[in-house]
Amino acid sequence: MNDYAISVIVNGVTYERRIPPRRSLVDFLRDDLALTGTHVGCEHGICGACTVMLDGVPIRSCIVYAVQADGASITTVEGLSPDGSTLTPLQDAFVECHGLQCGFCTPGMLIAATALLREKPDPSADEIRDELGGNICRCTGYQQIVEAVQLAARTGGTR
C-alpha cells in the first residue's frame, strides 16, 4: 500500500504527513501527532470516546480514515482551551460538578457538549441527554455530566 500525503489543520496548526490509507483518524491523532487526549474505546463507532470536531461537526475518529480528513480542520480536546491551560467554561463546569471520574470518556463528552452548546446555548436537561446519548460513561451515571453542561450554559457556554 502506498502512503498518501495529507494536510490537516488540528487545533489551529497545519500538519502535512504521509500516511497509509488504512490509518484511522484517531490513530493518526494519537500516534502521528502525539495528541493522546482523544481516546479509543470500542473502535467500532459506538462508545464516543474518540469524538473530535471535524470542520465543526462532532464525529467518531475511530471510524474515519485519516485520509478522509485531508484538507479538513479538526478540534480535539487539547484544542478546546485557547491557550491549552485556561479552562473553558465547559471544562471548568465539568471540574466543578464532578462530571467525570476516571477521565477516559471525558474528552469525547467535552467535544460533544461543546457542539451542543454552540447549537443550543441554553439546552434543557432532556436536550443534553439527547445530545450526549452517543457517549458512554461507565463511571458517573451521567447525572453530574448533565449538571456540568447546564452549569456551563449558565456561565458562558463554549466561549
Partner: peptide
C-alpha cells in the same frame, strides 16, 4: 472541593497506559 485530578483530564492531559510511548 474540586477533585485535583480533574484538571488534567478536562485538558486532555491525562496519562493513560495507552498513551505511554
Amino acid at each position: 472541593r474540586r477533585a485535583v485530578e480533574h484538571r488534567r483530564f478536562v485538558l486532555g492531559r491525562g496519562k493513560f497506559a495507552g498513551d505511554v510511548t
